[in-house]
């Protein structure tokens, strides 16, 4: 549900980090906050947590401007993963323009991943969004832990769905940017289709991604911005 104000030349986009409890959704936002340039982003707002567990949501806004003068604000939210906060998840998921599903790679979390994904499908439907037309990227987090699902199994499960899957270790930042980049790429396609970012506003997909992913000053050399996964 792209929020576009042609008169004010303003566009607001919303992406949501979804997934089971403790899979690392907030950690993803923390790393993005650290890794990306201060000029392109706002502050990370963490609404009340309890024992470090998200009960409302976290919010990290990003800003960029198209050559046409169009101001674009992209807000990244996390949802609470715990099953009991389903109503909150639904509320946050409203009018989302893209979703990152953060799965926990540990084998013992397989059931939780499946249930959370089914919950995502159900809730998208309930807030009036189509699963097929909502840009979605999957992140298998915690690749550094023992007892994790194998790459082959991940590929076998998700390969034929066509949904991009990234592996990450959000705690040290690995794969976080790549996941976000993949989502931005998909998100751009949808937005461009509706309000012609490239032809009307002179904003190419590459520029869109590069502006948001501009690394924090002083350590730009350390961040790997190449296309591709974690390997």
């Amino acid at each position: 549900m792209i929020e576009y104000d042609e008169f004010e030349k303003r566009l607001v986009l919303k992406v949501v980090y979804y997934g089971p409890a403790l899979s690392g959704k907030t950690t993803n936002l923390l790393r993005l906050h650290e890794l990306l340039a201060r000029e392109q982003r706002g502050d990370l707002m963490v609404l009340d947590t309890k024992d470090d567990r998200t009960i409302y949501f976290d919010l990290l806004p990003f800003f960029l401007q198209a050559p046409s003068g169009l101001k674009i604000k992209l807000k990244a939210y996390t949802v609470p993963g715990q099953v009991r906060h389903d109503a909150t998840r639904k509320a946050v998921l409203q009018r989302a323009d893209g979703v990152v599903f953060v799965a926990d790679s540990q084998l013992k979390e397989t059931t939780n991943n499946v249930e959370s994904f089914q919950n995502l499908e159900r809730n998208l439907k309930m807030v009036g969004l189509s699963f097929d037309s909502t840009p979605l990227v999957i992140q298998y987090n915690k690749r550094d832990l023992p007892g994790i699902v194998s790459t082959e199994d991940i590929d076998r499960v998700w390969g034929e769905t066509g949904i991009p899957v990234h592996r990450a270790c959000a705690l040290d930042g690995g794969g976080v940017l790549e996941t976000f980049r993949a989502l931005l790429g998909r998100l751009y396609l949808g937005v461009d289709e509706k309000i012609s970012l490239e032809s009307d506003h002179g904003l190419s997909r590459e520029d869109f991604i590069a502006q948001i992913l501009r690394p924090a000053s002083g350590d730009s050399g350390e961040i790997d911005l190449r296309e591709g996964g974690l390997e």
Binding site: D43, M45, L47, D48, Y56, F57, A87, V92
Partner: peptide
């Protein structure tokens, strides 16, 4: 401003959740 925004967001989501739960 930040605290007011947080309060508003919290209130919003709380109200939203309560209303939704009530409707459900």
């Amino acid at each position: 401003m930040t605290n007011n925004l947080k309060r508003m967001l919290t209130t919003e989501i709380h109200t939203q959740v309560v209303r939704q739960s009530y409707e459900e």
